[in-house]
Design a binder for these strands. Structure first.
Lengths: 205, 205
DNA sequence: TGTCCATCTGAACATTGCATAGATTGGAGA
DNA sequence: TCTCCAATCTATGCAATGTTCAGATGGACA
């Protein structure tokens, strides 16, 4: 427990502390293990304190979701570019699924419409920017215009391309690989077999 | 409100009544609108009564999930078979996505690992049987053995084929179409454009 | 008819998110 | 440096939720 037992009455940067604490809780105990009071106690603060910085639980979790999208975007941006459209698109898809597999709690969070304010402009912006690189890879492959940052609009082809990785990611965090493969590492087996299969079928090199 | 104000002290078939009530609540108010007490009141029964028939909330929701998979399986089985593998596979995928679009609350339920007992043998059996037809269509297309009902094992190719529809379904119930398409019927637009695109790309006729 | 036990009630308890009233204090302006 | 205000935090309470449990009820079966 960080606890962060502070000396002064005021915390100093409670807003950030709550986001970090919430992320840690979700990472270790999953979204279902998260409670607002737990995040407050983790930050060494009373249960009512968070309401002064966020619009309820949904507001705090939306902030965590934004942070998660920023991390996802950073990881996708860090992936190498080969210059070959099909190869790059496959790399992005694999990165997307890998992120979900390694961060199941946070990935579940960003898909929970009931826990997050999907109408929040900052959230919409973050979710779009995280997939910009992915969108560009898809655009390059399909020979279409890249996604428009200002209008936040993806082309149908890009939406289609993303659905594949999105479906694989969900199947991973729903634990389907364990039901499908009786191996020591079901998730690894699933990614190594299913992903190349469908991506090769969709976008042959 | 059905209320189902009964005359006798004993309900008669509370187990079924609770499942039906829960399904109705989820259908109208979503998974997040469901509470065990609400289902009890809906069935005209005290808050403690359900515990005599189900292993807590998770037990009841697992029963609802089983019922949902049975309906999904029935709908997929009712879809026509053309004899052409690619066509049939596409029909199954479209049926899968359509079910999710028309039953968003119930589809969310069957993907909520935290609300359902995924280890329940009856649930595992139901989830497998619902996708048997889909698996057969994929097997026919890929020229592989059909799924084994006894061992409950899908082939990697089938898992891949299902991921596409699964991803589209999730994007639909997560409200992505509304963010992607500025039309009167975003979901319809999404299905009509994105699904054919990716399925045509994956399994050309 | 009489007994048994599955079924259901009603009341409790801990936990949750949230609202509100009051305490504390950092810091801007005099 | 001093004053005072607004932001911040505490403490308390409230309604709702899932769950448990002692006791009431009555159907099934001998």
């Amino acid at each position: 427990m960080s606890g962060a037992a502070r000396d002064s009455y005021h915390h100093g940067d409670l807003k950030t502390a709550l986001i970090v604490a919430s992320e840690e809780i979700i990472r270790t105990e999953g979204v279902e293990g998260f409670t607002l009071r737990k995040a407050a106690k983790f930050s060494g603060v009373s249960p009512g304190a968070p309401s002064h910085h966020f619009n309820g639980t949904k507001g705090l979790l939306t902030a965590v979701a934004i942070r998660t999208f920023e991390k996802l975007g950073a990881e996708l941006n860090a992936l190498p570019s080969s210059g070959r459209p099909a190869q790059d698109l496959r790399t992005q898809a694999l990165g997307y699924v890998t992120f979900a597999a390694l961060n199941p709690g946070l990935f579940r969070l960003i898909c929970r419409v009931d826990l997050i304010d999907f109408k929040d402009p900052a959230f919409m912006q973050a979710s779009f920017e995280a997939l910009t690189r992915y969108g560009h890879a898809a655009a390059a492959y399909f020979g279409q215009e890249p996604p428009d940052v200002n209008k936040r609009v993806f082309r149908p082809h890009m939406a289609s391309a993303m659905a594949t990785a999105h479906g694989l990611a969900h199947m991973v965090i729903e634990g389907r690989p364990a039901l499908l493969f009786d191996t020591p590492d079901p998730v690894g087996t699933f990614i190594e077999t299913a992903l190349p299969l469908i991506l090769l079928a969709t976008w042959p090199d």
